[in-house]
């Protein structure tokens, strides 16, 4: 049984629970890391195409970003490096609890820029069929789970920074 103190909660994981949570964290980390690295390696990548296809609440913001070269390059850099760093952090278990929240922020933004709602048509063909719920939303929830059930202080580099007594 692993136990640690977090706020007023005591979280005890069985080995199965711990394994499941770590695997989830590592897989999401891998996904983020490659999404980031692939963008870094592609000199032609830009967030513009995604933003231009934005619908609903944030479409105005998307248009503002796209029409301003400075904002657009900031958006590109934040995406490329943000995804890479969040990915590496989750994979290695370094500051994972914080980066899980940041990662969640990213995916929720992706969801909100292009939500699969009734009546919204997107020009980019999706790779699956979605109604309100899509993989972005699910990944955001998975990151919420990772934030709520931290594991990096047990399996991960955070272990070296945490109080061994509580592990």
């Amino acid at each position: 049984m692993k136990q640690f103190q977090k706020g007023s909660y005591n979280l005890d994981y069985s080995t199965y629970q711990l394994s499941g949570l770590v695997v989830l964290r590592v897989l999401i980390g891998w996904h983020f890391l490659y999404e980031g690295v692939a963008k870094l390696l592609n000199p032609y990548w830009s967030s513009a195409a995604y933003l231009l296809d934005s619908k609903w609440l944030l479409s105005g913001l998307a248009e503002t970003i796209v029409s301003d070269p400075v904002l657009l390059s900031i958006s590109d850099y934040v995406n490329m490096w943000g995804l890479t760093l969040v990915g590496a952090s989750l994979l290695l278990g370094l500051f994972s609890q914080y980066t899980a929240l940041i990662g969640m922020g990213f995916v929720i933004l992706y969801y909100l820029f292009a939500p699969p709602f009734l009546g919204l048509e997107f020009s980019k063909p999706g790779e699956g069929s979605y109604l309100i719920v899509n993989k972005n939303l699910i990944e955001a929830c998975a990151l919420w789970v990772i934030y709520s059930f931290p594991t990096s202080h047990i399996i991960g580099l955070d272990r070296f920074f945490s109080n061994p007594e509580s592990n």
């Binding site: 994979l91 290695l92 047990i154 399996i155 991960g156 580099l157 272990r159």
Partner: peptide
Amino acid sequence: KGLATVPVFGLF
């Protein structure tokens, strides 16, 4: 335990 996921990073 601290380095358990480092091999995964290496694999990546």
